[in-house]
Design a binder for these strands. Structure first.
Lengths: 265, 265
DNA sequence: CAGTGGTCTAGACCACACT
DNA sequence: GTGTGGTCTAGACCACTGC
């Protein structure tokens, strides 16, 4: 909409640190990183919404008063972070969790046979969904204060009729005001898609801690497995822009018919 | 050493597909991809060995008769694949598994407390190391023929005196001729470092399949855990250049004090 | 056809490491 | 200072998409 104020010129005659000239580290920041920051800002503020196209490289170059190549390098990095999606001949788009090809981007459980991600959509059952006060641990993980309102959800995912994943998740009450079991049940597609379209919360990255555990009583019942059958415990913290934690999720995966796939490089 | 034969000129007057003009897809390949392929070749053939520096961008641009920017883009991709390592002011180096900072690059198990990768080096114990004939399954995974010679190794890694990882691994007999329990015991540092320096085999990427399992008798004994204690089963296939499988490794991780860390993006 | 992203070039200059 | 990788620019042209 409005153009940004004029930036620091690229390499002005006298070297001008962008900010805080007295910092311990010179904190030299390449132009394209600054552009990346500006684009990131426009993504955060919702100037460009998930699924929409952003202005063309040439247009952005004009707006930011830099060359197309510099904008290009900024977009390159954002695209490799999966925040943007480039499509030759069409434009650059704000990435979404609701695309066909990358559905369940954060779910790495795949069936032992069959190459499809989860061979067909999962049956989702919301077991529980309630508001409560954050424990100290939940509060710490979600960067809240103990006692703040959080939403707790428990659900089961089944593949081919077999309950395979049990998930407990905790969401900060503020951003997810209005989320209910009803909404979760009605919505089709990945939960992170719902978060984007209904609550404007886009999950950007996540960390997972994986362990082997034995189920407790409720887990073995919901997953219909004996108490001695080991489960994969997957504890995930998902972050939105600015490394803000927005979800704590504890998943319990049956790995008798599926496995967690990870590519190392 | 010797210069490459002259390449296809960039965008020659008449469009010249690199190869196989009758392919279904036009198979247009950008120049920098072709350069990437040539550099990859020099890495495979050992013209530039792990740890050594490769020629400067300007020199490579001259050798391949392209601009520095094109070489740069090729190197960029190889660096992001961790095949090369750029160091400003010094040069570009062939990546290694023996660097301090990325030691145990493929090992994602970290202690629950303490941020260090494995807080200090692990104690390694070779339990077994013998040559045998490949089973059908091993042969398939390693792209061998059933009955071909393979090396089988079993070892235990302990952290702070606690046996934490039990690994069974299978290596093709040919490339690893001369590998013995003795060598494995004597060598300090990551096993993949030994593979590089002693056998010229550089692991480039790997796929892992992770499950929760219960230990068998020998596993619970070696890891000093009860038979009911679940373990993380990590089945890894590691590849060298050209997607050639070079190792099958089955790891069993205790996750009572450690966890498998994975970053999603 | 026009508009978009993708590739390639040539040249200038900056930041870093070594000597 | 010299040589390396890192950034930035300007311009040309290619490849893909859709009107």
């Amino acid at each position: 909409m409005t153009h940004e104020p004029p930036m620091n010129l690229p390499f002005p005659p006298t070297e001008t640190p962008a900010l805080d000239a007295s910092a311990l580290t010179p904190a030299f920041s390449p132009l394209y990183q600054q552009i990346k920051g500006l684009i990131l800002q426009s993504l955060q503020t919702g100037e460009w919404k998930p699924g929409e196209s952003i202005p063309s490289e040439i247009e952005l170059a004009g707006r930011y008063r830099v060359s197309q190549g510099t904008v290009r390098k900024a977009i390159d990095e954002l695209a490799s972070d999966h925040l943007l999606l480039r499509r030759q001949g069409k434009g650059t788009f704000v990435a979404t969790h609701t695309e066909q090809h990358v559905q369940y981007r954060f779910l790495k459980l795949v069936p032992d046979q069959g190459n499809q991600n989860t061979e067909g959509p999962a049956q989702r059952t919301i077991v529980d969904c309630k508001r409560l006060r954050a424990t100290a641990e939940i509060a710490r993980t979600l960067a809240l204060r103990a006692g703040d309102s959080v939403l707790q959800v428990r659900r089961v995912l089944s593949f081919a009729g077999i309950p395979t994943i049990l998930e407990d998740l905790w969401l900060p009450g503020g951003p997810f005001k209005g989320l209910s079991a009803e909404r979760l049940t009605v919505y089709q597609g990945p939960m992170y898609g719902l978060f984007e379209t209904e609550f404007g919360v886009r999950m950007v990255r996540a960390d997972e801690k994986i362990r082997a555990v034995l189920p407790d009583a409720s887990q073995s019942e919901l997953l219909q497995i004996p108490a001695s059958a080991p489960l994969l415990s997957v504890e995930r913290v998902a972050y939105t822009y600015n490394d803000t934690p927005m979800e704590l999720r504890r998943g319990f995966y049956r790995t008798d018919t599926h496995h967690y796939r990870n590519a190392l490089s």
